[in-house]
């Protein structure tokens, strides 16, 4: 009998009912963090920048659920507001690198000639640059803040998506259904954008989900070394950095909470990403 290889089924929602308890947990964690950050202006108990010098480095209590930092600012409120910048960065980077990567990957995978080869080498070249290094380079050029790292990270993460998309397109291109479209006389842009692209979305989506976690950690690291978001804007990485003094003085919590949230979100996103790619990989074999 002929070996039947199932193509990946498109549409992430089809995997929804198949998620493991672990992935459901991760999804719940991510949802709670996103919800709290998104509605921070309404939900946060305090102004994140309100300095209360009478209440410095307070422990968790009824007044301040997670305690306060060295300037007496409410840690929970800062975490919630910080989430807005901390999550915004990776979101932009992931969307940008996915769109750019898909487009470049499609072009590279579809063109059989020199263009595909040149683009492939370009992706390799980009791979060789660590994302953090690129970000620092961009900061040197454009100055500190959110713009430069996001731009650099977007470019740095393009090859992750593009390489994957390219290899998927190369595989897809030789499949009989795509050849049938050609013989039927459908125009190439219609076939590539209308038919091949949607079939790549689940796999690329899984990769991009994983990327989100890495970008979040990278951006937090940049803020920590003082190159990212500038005070007084709250950001998880910046919060850890600001709490270094307190940490040395024996007050762990101001640095612990943001670090915990970063770890939680990165792990959650990784679990979801792994789960998705497992599902898709499973469908492939």
């Amino acid at each position: 009998m002929t070996l039947a290889i199932q193509l990946p089924q498109a549409g992430l929602r089809r995997y929804g009912n198949l998620l493991s308890p672990m992935a459901w947990g991760a999804l719940a964690v991510a949802a709670v963090v996103v919800f709290l950050s998104l509605f921070a202006p309404v939900l946060a108990p305090y102004d994140p920048d309100y300095v209360d010098l009478n209440n410095v480095l307070a422990g968790p209590g009824a007044q301040h659920l997670l305690g306060t930092d060295a300037l007496g600012r409410d840690l929970l409120s800062r975490l919630m507001h910080g989430g807005r910048t901390s999550l915004l960065g990776p979101t932009i980077v992931v969307i940008g690198s996915t769109v750019l990567g898909l487009l470049l990957g499609l072009v590279a995978g579809w063109s059989e000639g020199w263009l595909g080869k040149v683009l492939g080498r370009l992706f390799d070249l980009l791979f060789a640059f660590p994302a953090l290094l690129m970000a620092m380079l961009a900061i040197a050029l454009f100055g500190k803040g959110l713009f430069a790292p996001i731009l650099a990270m977007t470019i740095a993460y393009v090859p992750y998506v593009a390489r994957l998309a390219q290899s998927l397109v190369v595989a897809e291109r030789s499949r009989p259904y795509v050849q049938a479209y050609r013989v039927l006389g459908f125009r190439t842009p219609w076939v590539v954008l209308g038919r091949v692209l949607p079939n790549l979305i689940p796999t690329v989506g899984a990769q991009s989900t994983l990327n989100f976690g890495y970008v979040l950690a990278d951006l937090a690291a940049l803020s920590f070394i003082g190159l990212g978001v500038q005070p007084p804007t709250s950001d998880w990485g910046a919060m850890i950095e600001e709490s270094r003094g307190a940490l040395l003085g024996g007050y762990i919590l101001p640095a612990f909470w943001p670090a915990l949230v970063v770890v939680l979100v990165v792990v959650a996103v990784n679990v979801i990403g792994e789960e998705l790619s497992d599902r898709i990989g499973g469908k492939l074999s």
């Binding site: 002929t2 039947a4 290889i5 199932q6 193509l7 990946p8 089924q9 498109a10 549409g11 499949r175 009989p176 259904y177 049938a180 479209y181 038919r195 949607p198 079939n199």
Partner: peptide
């Protein structure tokens, strides 16, 4: 191949 000659989606 009947499994590959149609667009799965």
């Amino acid at each position: 191949d009947p499994y590959l000659s149609l667009d799965p989606r």
